[in-house]
Design a protein around this nucleic acid. Structure first.
Lengths: 125, 125
DNA sequence: TAATTATATACGCTTGAACATATATATGGA
DNA sequence: TCCATATATATGTTCAAGCGTATATAATTA
């Protein structure tokens, strides 16, 4: 764990909220809260934003300890850090419940659900 | 209700988190979540920050619809807007539960509790 | 009306964060 | 080894937001 992580790992409570205070990051987090781990290409496709923009925001979330990552081949999968403090996990779920029927979250879920050729996606199980 | 309020009144979810993403604002909100309405001088004393700084942050919170205000003589009392959406109120309470035993929130509560001459404070009932 | 207290706002400055674009790195397959 | 795909990072710029200081407004009391 490097210095950047130690510096920002929720030592200060408001740094957690800073991570939620950007619409791109919040949309990514809500998708992961709803769907579990997602890779960069799924988020790039779903939010229709540039790959560097998505990657940079995911890096921020990871450095802040909000996300953890796993590599599988060329794909990087990100998911919400299960070791987040309980109140932080609660807030993510409460937020999802609060926004899941509003835009842009409805559309995001829909677009992700309709995405073809998702890596690791098993059709017909 | 003026244009600024309409623009920021939680039409965008992340604007709510933007309001929580500043330590001064978060400390004020946690005190109000714990204590109910508070006036500017109580917050200025408790956080040991300049009056204009506190006032400006309270104005932001009010414009965003997170706080409502009431005047009583020369004092302005602010409190969490009871008409906030349920999920937003839940998040404030969850956050308070999560941080109430950590700094700077412990000290803030202590200093406020020990403050002398609080306006509207009835000694010996 | 004048003085005092409490609060709000205006101004100029600084800084951090987000952005677009370009480029680097990493993995897997031919 | 070379290429293609997926992802990460670097660079320079722009802009929003916070800050301190000064000043304005509002209510109260003399």
């Amino acid at each position: 764990m490097d210095k950047r992580i130690l510096r920002t790992m929720l030592n200060e409570t408001d740094s957690f909220f800073k991570m939620l205070a950007d619409s791109t990051r919040l949309r990514c987090l809500m998708l992961m809260q709803a769907e579990g781990e997602l890779c960069v290409c799924e988020l790039t496709h779903t939010l229709n934003l540039s790959q560097p923009k998505i990657s940079r925001h995911l890096a921020h979330l990871r450095e802040a300890g909000v996300l953890v990552a796993r590599r599988n081949g060329t794909w990087m999968y990100y998911r919400i850090n299960p070791d987040l403090q309980g109140w932080a996990l609660d807030i993510l779920q409460t937020t999802l419940n609060g926004v899941r029927k509003t835009e842009p979250f409805v559309s995001d879920q829909k677009i992700l659900g309709a995405m073809a050729n998702r890596p690791g996606f098993k059709c017909c199980s």
